[in-house]
């Protein structure tokens, strides 16, 4: 039997889907970690990015952060945190690492989105007597939304990828199926786990891309002029 067939057999065996080591449980762990960490990072990063973007300060920080994030290996940070005193607290090292690596794409995209809002539009809003808060809420944020969403999508894909690596340091998630497969030198299981992880990442990317398109369409219907923002600058997620 070829590897493809064996993988198919593995995936279609019901026993592999149930139990603590089963696919459903690992998928639930993966989704839970992803959701929690994405929410924490959004809460931390987006207000800061919007504020920095509105005032135009800290631009170098916001932009360089994603370059710095690229240079630091997620795997190394996961191992370092696991060996640190924090390692005694279950999945906290993983959560911290995930949040750390989700912040750069969120911060950079949201900041760039805010700065790319046409200055004339902002000036016009000020001229109409809008307060700083109103300018942010009614003008800058709506126009920056596509870029902010691009950042959220990058961060989501990044988090899904990093959760899978967390399995190498004993964390949960679908990556565990792969690492267990390596320990058992069971290639079909390694490939099956990889297929599941890849499918999840592509699904998340697709869902967020669809959400972005939906948002763009509803805004057009609402009579708001579509933002004259250039094509979304691609802050690529590190496929951690």
């Amino acid at each position: 039997m070829g590897v493809a067939e064996e993988t198919w057999t593995w995936l279609t065996t019901g026993a592999h889907w149930s139990g603590t080591d089963g696919v459903w449980h690992r998928l639930a762990e993966h989704l839970e970690l992803t959701t929690v960490c994405l929410l924490i990072s959004c809460v931390l990063a987006l207000p800061v990015a919007v504020l920095l973007g509105h005032t135009g300060r800290g631009g170098a920080l916001a932009v360089n952060l994603s370059n710095a994030g690229r240079a630091v290996p997620t795997f190394a940070v996961l191992v370092l945190l696991t060996l640190s005193p924090l390692g005694e607290y279950g999945s906290w090292p993983t959560v911290l690492a995930l949040v750390l690596f989700a912040i750069p794409p969120l911060l950079t995209n949201a900041y760039v989105g805010m700065r790319e809002v046409d200055r004339d539009v902002v000036e016009a809003a000020r001229g109409m007597g809008m307060s700083g808060r109103q300018v942010v809420g009614r003008v800058e944020l709506p126009l920056a939304l596509p870029m902010i969403m691009t950042g959220v999508r990058s961060a989501a894909v990044q988090v899904v990828a990093t959760v899978s690596i967390a399995a190498m340091v004993g964390g949960g998630g679908l990556g565990r199926i792969i690492t267990a497969g390596f320990r058992l030198t069971y290639t079909a299981q390694v490939v099956a786990g990889a297929v599941l992880v890849a499918a999840l990442a592509l699904l998340v990317e697709g869902l967020f891309a669809a959400l972005e398109r939906l948002l763009a369409r509803s805004r057009r219907r609402g009579g708001v002029r579509p933002p004259v923002s250039p094509e979304p600058a691609d802050v690529q997620p590190v496929a951690g």
Binding site: V3, V157, V160, A161, T162, S164, I165, A167, M168, G175, I178, G181, T187, V190, V191, G193, A194, V195, V197, A198, A201, L202, E205, Q236, P237, A239, G240
Partner: peptide, 16 residues
């Protein structure tokens, strides 16, 4: 699409 595939999965898929 290739970039979206997490590295752990990418390497595992290439093992066979």
């Amino acid at each position: 699409v290739l970039y979206t595939v997490p590295s752990l999965a990418m390497f595992s898929l290439l093992v066979p």
